[in-house]
Amino acid sequence: MTPRLRALVTASAISAAATAGYLTARHSLQAELSTVRHAATHDPLTGICNRAGLTAAADTLIRTAYSAGRHVAVVLVDLVGFKKVNDTHGHDAGDHILTAVANRLTGFAGPAGIAARLGGDEFAVITTGPATRHHDADTWLADWLTHIHTRLTTPVTYHARPLAVGATLGAALADSGYPAATWLHRADLAMYAARAQRRTTAVFTEHTDTAADQRPTDRPRDLARPTSPLAAAPTTRRAA
């Protein structure tokens, strides 16, 4: 091999090695960025979306489903008696319940919906109804809420013993005329109304809006949650 040919072979080898190293580094960086993005939008305990993940996807989901002529339900879920489980059985048992609830809500949301853990023992679901909008939306939503409440509150088995799961659900029918934050707020008002009336579920209506018009936000339950938007809210809040 001539010196010139040897130099060309050496240069080609170096170039190939550099290209391979660049591609490997690029692939590694892309994988790392994907991991970071996933961590930023998903709850580390349950694996479902967190508040940021829900916020990022909710508007598109609602707009797409509504444009296709589907009912869109926005549901907030507040667990009841969760602190007692933690205090009685330990935080591992509490984590087990949170994970079980997340899995159940993911099933309710379906492939076209989204389930999220907003923080603590508060969850949200945005999903589409099984029928087009010419059907009675209010009846469907009320019946569906009752159905998922029954399934959601089925006791969870932990170390061969059943643990109770309590929950209050509030829901609103959404459309593309307002951002997702509006519908989440209305679902929150419905959930507050359900608690105030000692019910397990409630659907937002104009009557719900009026009844909760002077809703206090400095409830100890809300202020105890650093992730709750109510912690930084004004003294009273009006329905959207």
Rank of each mutant, 00 (worst) to 15 (best):
A17I: 06
E206P: 00
R37P: 03
T153S: 11
F108K: 05
R63K: 04
R117Q: 11
H42Q: 10
A109Y: 01
A232F: 01
H89P: 05
T60K: 04
V74M: 05
T182M: 06
R4E: 12
A52C: 08
A160V: 02
G53F: 04
P216Y: 06
T205M: 01
V203H: 07
I62A: 06
G166V: 02
V75Y: 07
A239S: 13
M1D: 04
D218Y: 08
R219F: 09
H159F: 07
R37C: 03
R104A: 00
H96G: 01
T139L: 11
R63Y: 03
T46V: 03
Y22K: 02
R186N: 02
G21M: 13
N50K: 13
I14K: 11
H91P: 07
S176Q: 10
H185D: 05
A115H: 00
A124M: 10
P155N: 04
T153Y: 10
Q214D: 13
D121S: 09
V80R: 11
A7L: 15
T35Y: 05
I126E: 00
D218E: 12
T157H: 04
D209Q: 09
Y192F: 14
D143A: 15
T168R: 15
V80P: 01
Q30E: 15
G177Q: 05
R221H: 09
V156I: 07
V203Q: 08
A25F: 10
R26E: 11
V74E: 01
V75L: 11
R26W: 02
Y158P: 00
A196P: 01
G47C: 05
T227Q: 15
Y178W: 00
Y192D: 04
A17T: 11
G166L: 03
P220F: 10
A102V: 04
P162V: 00
I14A: 14
F123P: 08
A31G: 08
R6C: 02
A171N: 03
L23K: 05
G53H: 09
A167I: 07
G90Q: 10
A193M: 07
G110Y: 05
I126M: 04
L29P: 04
D95T: 11
L223T: 13
V36H: 09
E32A: 14
T19S: 09
A180H: 04
